[in-house]
Design a protein around this nucleic acid. Structure first.
Ligand SMILES: [Mn+2]
Ligand SMILES: [Mn+2]
Ligand SMILES: [Zn+2]
Ligand SMILES: [Zn+2]
Lengths: 152, 152
DNA sequence: CATTATAATGAAAATGATTTTCAATATCAT
DNA sequence: ATGATATTGAAAATCATTTTCATTATAATG
């Protein structure tokens, strides 16, 4: 448990392209509204709410409706491309998901998110199962603090 | 990181009494509505939403209003007597809080919560701070699974 | 115990976020 | 280009939570 590894990202452009292709492969159509929401999420380094995305997306796609933001988020979440960020300050923001299991370090001030892995909770989980009788399926490990930019 | 310790609770009756006294000490009055909500929370071994508490509380205090449930939850949370339970299934349920820092093991099926401590994330946190540049204030470690009763 | 100041109450209205409905439009396979 | 239909945004509906407000209950005081 002493070796966190911060996960690095693809470029936003790459990410947008892959997501849109994936949406299409799943039988969804590529539209201006979806492109606007996908682009905003792919470029974001901080978590965004539906309202945030509405505002940002409107810059690219003039007529974007808030409804489409919700509908796009729903699909992206289903496909595992974005995930909700839960925290003491709220649970309604989304960020691009990583492949596989990993965890978040969240800035309490600006919402910036770093993903990391490298926790090693196998033994701890096994012991907790033994002590509690629970069958454990999943865990969350999250850290909250203030990012470098917000410290300045 | 291999020694979780499940935290044991006071009796529900004891808990109710202490909470009500504490409310009074803080200048709040003890009323039927508050007693109903406090009793329900103190007896619960699973997390409860405002709607749950409204239903349960109504059994004790016929005229209980949903508004008072919300108002009581607000105060209990302020005083650190209850805390919100966040999980993949939702973030609007409350459970009695423990003194000091600890973590939750949540049943995905019935909402039962066990508290534990004994994680040791000091080194991990320090390393994560070094790698990320964040100043870390807080962490969440939660496990989700199925409790013994729900396995049967 | 009776009086009293006021904290707390519940009903109803207001709010705010999300979802549903629906007629019009855009996408994409042909 | 055409046509089937998935997607759209506006408006309405829904749902949880909060606010308002006139009434009631609490607890301190005499
Ligand atoms: Mn992990
Ligand atoms: Mn801890
Ligand atoms: Zn920040
Ligand atoms: Zn259970």
């Amino acid at each position: 448990m002493t070796h966190p590894q911060i996960v690095t990202e693809q470029s936003p452009a790459e990410k947008s392209r892959l997501w849109l292709r994936y949406l299409q492969q799943q039988g969804y159509r590529i539209t201006g509204s979806r492109r606007a929401v996908v682009d905003a999420l792919a470029q974001a380094e901080r978590s965004l709410t539906a309202a945030d995305l509405y505002e940002i997306g409107r810059a690219k796609h003039k007529g974007l409706g808030l409804v489409s933001v919700y509908r796009t988020l729903e699909k992206l979440e289903e496909l595992g491309l974005v995930q909700r960020v839960h925290g003491p300050g709220g649970c309604h923001a989304y960020i691009s998901a990583q492949d596989g299991h990993n965890h978040m370090l969240v800035c309490e001030n600006c919402g910036r998110v770093e993903m990391f892995e490298g926790d090693d909770l196998k033994d701890f989980t096994r012991n907790l199962e033994k002590q509690s009788g629970f069958r454990i399926h999943e865990h969350w490990l999250q850290f909250f603090g203030v990012c470098t930019e917000c410290q300045a």
